[in-house]
């Protein structure tokens, strides 16, 4: 059962990841991204990470992606290409993609493949439960956790400041 689910979710994840890049209409691209996030949530569930899976669906698929859909539904038309022709980004993007691909390949071949024959790490009871994650966040990972929340606070304040500055500017490109 778990194996079947894994391959279904993995195939869905890869397929939708390809669709995100290849689909021309940005709206469908976002839909593919949502499916991709859901497939990843299923993979998290198979790894006993219930909380992470739920957070993934609630926060990313449920909230962040709604905003993406909002924007693409309002402004994105299928007649406009997602990436403008030419430009610097177009020329350097393949190099970055290749670099990330090589880096990930090294990481996977170097560490992941040796684990294929094993049955996975031992997990204790209550692993991945909200209580355990909360305890880790407030003890072992306190500093990164606080740093991340400051980052979020700063972006929230920044968004308000930017929105305030643009108020009343009708001719500005919004």
């Amino acid at each position: 059962m778990a194996e079947v689910l894994f391959f279904l979710a993995a195939a869905l994840a890869i397929g939708t990841a390809l669709a995100i890049v290849l689909v021309q209409n940005p709206f469908y691209s976002v839909l593919a991204l949502i499916l991709n996030l859901i497939a990843l949530a299923i993979l998290f569930l198979l790894l006993n990470a219930e909380f992470l899976a739920a957070a993934q669906v609630v926060v990313y698929a449920g909230a962040v992606m709604v905003l993406y859909i909002f924007v693409t539904a309002y402004v994105g038309g299928s007649d406009q290409p997602v990436i403008p022709e030419g430009g610097v980004l177009r020329t350097i993007a393949p190099f970055f993609a290749a670099a990330i691909f090589i880096e990930l390949s090294i990481a996977i071949v170097g560490s992941g493949l040796t684990m294929l024959d094993s049955s996975g790490a031992e997990i204790s009871a209550g692993f991945g439960s909200p209580a355990q994650i909360g305890e880790l966040l407030l003890s072992r990972f306190l500093v990164p956790f606080e740093a991340a929340s400051y980052l979020l606070l700063i972006t929230a304040v920044g968004a308000i400041v930017l929105a305030q500055r643009r108020r009343g500017l009708e001719e500005a490109e919004l």
Binding site: F51, A54, V57, V58, A61, G62
Partner: peptide, 13 residues
Amino acid sequence: SIGLLYFFAFGSF
């Protein structure tokens, strides 16, 4: 163990 979050996850669908 994530009961309420499960409820919210489907709610966001």
